[in-house]
Design a protein around this nucleic acid. Structure first.
Lengths: 118, 118
DNA sequence: AAGATATTTGGCAAAATAGCCAAATATCTT
DNA sequence: AAGATATTTGGCTATTTTGCCAAATATCTT
């Protein structure tokens, strides 16, 4: 792995790190639906105004969102179109993993279901 | 945001956290090409065997890779098909951001190029 | 069975990240 | 211009994540 490769990987990691936090992921999912102002997130996640503001800064620095001040509010919107699809894929995988784990813990539960369905 | 939503978000975050490290992202990109054993990564990234092993464990716990022991080696392979496409999308976005930043720092550089091309 | 190779695990110190508070800034209202 | 509202910034502690070392395990070779 040379210097340039390493640099590119680290740049991508900035984006992934930005996504890798519950509050920030929530924000991204909300922004996938519509633009929102900071105060709307403060209400939804239980965190300080300053905490939310800093999370949004992380997302902005990573290039995931852009902001626009209108009046005394600042509105944020999504800037990376491929995010929603990918997050959805993760959701599917997570659900599949959960089923698999449950099956390992108690296979009978699933056998019964299959029999019932057949 | 209710309890169930929060739980789902946190489960997704586990996956994203697993991706959000240069060494692990590198590993994922390599595994997108072909399965590899631990020692091959130890050579490529400059890190201790134990460090690489732990990174692989993180990926495995997140459900991103699976392992198979063959002889004295352990081979890892990718388990989530949507990853390569998404990582590629991040790469594109990162490159675009880099161009944009360069343009903000020195717009003339880009003007000259456009003129030359026209 | 003793030695070599490949890998994982335990433990710990260093580095990075998160979240709160208080203070600063910016915009609107009166 | 003083006050209210929305947001950002600075600073500081608490938590989490990393990465190395040493030791344990497991498999192959002799």
């Amino acid at each position: 792995m040379n210097q340039q490769q390493r640099h590119l990987i680290e740049a991508k990691t900035v984006v992934l790190k930005a996504l890798a936090h519950p509050t920030r992921l929530y924000i991204i999912e909300e922004l996938a639906k519509a633009e929102k102002c900071v105060c709307e997130f403060v209400d939804a996640v239980q965190a300080d105004f300053s905490t939310v503001s800093k999370h949004l800064l992380v997302l902005k620095n990573a290039g995931l969102v852009e902001d626009e001040k209108r009046g005394q509010q600042v509105f944020y919107r999504l800037r990376m179109r491929c995010l929603p699809g990918f997050i959805n894929c993760i959701g599917v995988a997570v659900a599949a993993n959960a089923r698999m784990k449950a099956m390992q813990i108690n296979p009978d539960l699933f056998k019964a279901k299959e029999t019932a369905e057949a």
